[in-house]
Design a protein around this nucleic acid. Sequence first.
DNA 1: GGGTTGATGTTC
DNA 2: AACATCAACCCG
Length: 200
Amino acid sequence: MPYLGTAFFERDVLTVARDLIGVEFDWHGCAGIIVETEAYAVEGDLACHTASRPSARDFVKSKPAGTAYVYLNYGMYWLFNLLVKGGERDGLILIRALEPRRGLKQMQQRRNRIKPEDLCSGPGKLATALGIFGTHHGTVMIGRGKPAGVGLKMAADPAHEVVSDIRVGISQAVDFPWRFLSNHSPHVSVKFGKVKVPAT
DNA sequence: GGGTTGATGTTC
DNA sequence: AACATCAACCCG
């Protein structure tokens, strides 16, 4: 199975976010199946970093589709996103949860957790498990220049039921149903229909 | 099980 | 000041 190429990431951000469910994420000896994503649109989405951060707008403008956008949240958790552009809507896709497949031992050492369902069931958790840091911001995830052992590929077993839900932990555009998950997967961060909407 | 709290640093 | 989070802790 070849790694996904440019064409996959040059489509509408919602389409790509949905299609990433069930895709294998390879990262330096560890791998997992993506079971949860969130789409953030460059235009018309106040929850997207591009709405408030000039640096994010520069990133979208200057980098090609398939580039990793990595940033620190709450002072301690690295969050991993993929840049999508060239389709209907440009945007960033947050990878929120993986079903671990390879390198479990290494992930467990980094996380101090034993249960596979707890290893990568959240964006901060999966970055910790995989050893993703700020130094990986700007990593090319497709085509030439992509590090060996890194990339996204179609899994042998297809995803089952993909459902969409509102996004987690934001205070703007809270009602956009732009979170995608593999329904009934025990490896997601928050189960379908369980996101708490902030007051006010 | 469910709710609450505090840690921590970058960006604006 | 806000923030795309998490684990530890309480209560039951």
